[in-house]
């Protein structure tokens, strides 16, 4: 599914959080959204998911403007997985994943066999089958995050938006999840803090700074220039590891300056 946003602007309490963001995501593409804290990543995802009404601009799925969509129709196009999974619920894990089938069920009907099969499949995909009857309150942070992602996948939408989906996951699950998302035919937008993961699994990266889209392109382009240094205040170097995966080495600007500073002090001492 194709997703495009045109001059998307969002304001709250007189503050402009998003400034005319325009981007176009191709069908099946995995787009990484990167940027420092408060740069507008979550807000952008929420506007794209139709959860916030933009102050200006439009969001289109396959060319259709979502402004006139009902909540239910929108849920057939896009699934959104929130960042904060800390909710005290008494539902079982399978019930939580079943919430993803809500847009396809009539209010009077329970789940049918197809719903059950999809839920079982997504639980299996997220490695949660053994926890399906556990109550939500007993899960770890990572298990909750995986259950929420399974719920998003169970929605079977053409587009999946995930806000920092790996922040509670252990390393193996991070790699498995991102590998699965990157290779899926679904259009995926994903906000990430880890630039190495972003470089390895995303087709393109969108770099946000103070609510503005300052770069949009392949990881090699976005991470290679001086932009990362200007936006994050760190020095990033894109390298390749021994199996050919990209790896981003990071240094704070002071770290890079420190050796020369030490040298100059020594020189000063000597002199």
């Amino acid at each position: 599914m194709r997703l495009d946003a045109d001059h998307l602007t969002w304001e709250t309490a007189g503050r402009r959080i998003l400034h005319a963001v325009t981007l176009d995501v191709r069908p099946g593409e995995t787009l990484g959204i990167i940027g420092p804290n408060g740069s507008g990543k979550s807000t952008l995802l929420r506007c794209l998911a139709g959860l916030r009404t933009p102050s200006a601009g439009t969001v289109r799925y396959d060319g259709r403007d979502i402004a006139r969509f009902t909540a239910k129709r929108l849920a057939h196009y896009v699934a959104f997985v929130e960042q904060d999974a800390q909710v005290a619920s008494e539902l079982r894990v399978a019930d939580v994943v079943m919430l993803g089938r809500t847009p396809y069920r009539s209010p009077w009907r329970g789940s049918d066999e197809r719903d059950q099969a999809i839920v079982a499949e997504e639980l299996e995909r997220m490695g949660l089958s053994h926890l399906r009857d556990r109550p939500w309150r007993g899960l770890s942070g990572g298990e909750r995050q995986r259950a929420h992602i399974a719920r998003g996948l169970a929605q079977r939408t053409g587009c999946l938006l995930l806000d920092e989906p790996v922040n509670h996951l252990d390393i193996r699950h991070q790699l498995e999840l991102l590998g699965m998302l990157a290779s899926s035919p679904t259009t995926v937008l994903i906000s990430l803090h880890d630039l190495t993961l972003a470089a390895r699994f995303c087709d393109r990266l969108a770099l946000l700074d103070h609510g503005r889209l300052v770069a949009l392109g392949p990881p090699g382009e976005v991470l290679a220039g001086d932009l990362v240094r200007a936006v994050f205040g760190v020095d990033a170097r894109l390298e390749t590891d021994h199996v050919g995966h990209p790896i981003v080495t990071l240094h704070t600007v002071t770290e890079l300056e420190a050796p020369s500073a030490v040298v100059s002090t020594e020189q000063g001492d000597r002199a």
């Binding site: 849920a75 896009v78 919430l99 993803g100």
Partner: peptide, 16 residues
């Protein structure tokens, strides 16, 4: 059921 997970999650599964 969905509202138990907050307004945003509920809205994203199609709840008005």
């Amino acid at each position: 059921d969905a509202l138990g997970f907050g307004a945003d999650t509920a809205a994203s599964v199609g709840v008005d």
